[in-house]
Computed example of a mutant assay.
Amino acid sequence: MAEIVIKNVAKSFGSFKALHAIDLTITDQEFMVLLGASGCGKTTLLRIIAGLETPSQGEVWIGGRRVDHLPPRERGISMVFQNYAVFPHLTVYENIAFGLRMKKLPQAEVDKRVKRTAELMHIEQLLKRYSGQLSGGQRQRVAVARALAMEPDVILMDEPLSNLDALLRLEMRAELKGVLAESKTTTIYVTHDQVEAMSLADRISVMNGGRIVQAASPVEVYRNPAARFVGSFIGNPPMNFITARRLGDGRWQAADLTLDGPAVQQDKLEFAIRPEDVNVAEGGLKAVARVVEPLGAHTLVTCEVGGGLFRAVLDSDMRVAPGDELSLVPKPDRIRWFDPQSELAV
């Protein structure tokens, strides 16, 4: 078992508080993604789990054993870094075998693990090549194979695909997900790329300002954001937000549209809807198209609604030009509401 339990972990650098009392449990064999913008604390949290940073407070447990006082080599982890960290003067075989030889494993066991992990990562034909002769994607495969060869309880990955081009990232995402599922290894993966997070994760921990704002499945994070920040960060384009005023009896006015909403006493809430969750039909929000972006399968239209910007994803067959007037009807089951004070979902 390699369950990871993070209890009340905080980290300060002088007067700057990078992490605020983080509590998080990652179950055995789970693929957890830490997602957030630069500076949100995700890499600091990963480094604390790895033993590369010391927490200012709190505890880290791996497999039922408290490890926050142990050096990295005694935590049962392997790491894959953004810059690959492979040795250019060694062959692929020697790179994968490096940690195994440090553990003084028998040569037969080294050979077996190198062969198995090279096959998993589809680099068995490269074992005699020097890593300095490899492409970026091949070096990244070597880095993952080296981590897997150690048979760790946990693999920690810090933006491992960020240096690859778009097509190679797509291929590597699919490979990583399959390989790590087959290896049955608990994985924590840091990224700022929400597409990576959505495609790879069993669960996503969305971080902001040194806090975990929501930890849930990709579908739950996307469809039911727990806070305004999650709705505005997840999705490309992100959610639309319109200030709504209470009319009474659970009725709310958002721009020129009257809607059923939460029966709360606040005078104002924020009405939120994703751009793909509106239809062009009578009786909706009155919108004027300002920018039209054909994107192949669909068209992104940036409109003016009630004096603010509102984005709608429409079918590519629909002909829209700047200046056109539209009526946008939100899908009722996709509407979300947020408290403007706490910014939490209502």
Results as ranks from 00 to 15, higher is better:
T117R: 10
L326N: 00
L168Y: 14
P332S: 09
M102I: 12
Y84W: 09
S316P: 13
G231I: 01
R245G: 08
F241T: 03
M32P: 00
R336M: 06
L46D: 00
L35W: 02
N83Q: 13
A201I: 04
Y84M: 07
T186M: 09
F81N: 06
A216V: 05
V301H: 09
L164Q: 09
K17E: 15
L127T: 10
L257T: 07
V9S: 03
E276M: 10
V292P: 04
R245S: 14
V154P: 02
P262D: 02
V5M: 10
E94N: 13
R228F: 10
L164E: 11
A244M: 09
A37W: 07
H69K: 12
A321R: 15
S38T: 11
T187I: 09
F229S: 02
R223H: 07
F271E: 00
E3V: 11
G248V: 05
P160V: 07
Q341I: 13
R228Q: 14
K112P: 02
S217N: 08
V5E: 11
P294I: 14
G14K: 12
V33E: 04
M102V: 15
L35Q: 05
G308Y: 09
P225E: 01
G36P: 00
G210D: 05
Q194Y: 02
N279P: 08
R334M: 12
L127N: 04
Q266R: 14
L90P: 01
D158P: 06
G323N: 15
L269P: 00
F31W: 06
P262R: 00
S78C: 09
G99I: 06
G308Q: 15
R73V: 10
G210R: 04
V5Y: 04
L148V: 07
T186A: 09
K286N: 15
Q57K: 11
W252E: 00
P55C: 14
S327W: 12
P225H: 02
R223W: 03
V33K: 02
V80H: 00
S316D: 14
K331Q: 13
V264W: 12
Y189H: 05
P160G: 05
T243R: 13
V9T: 07
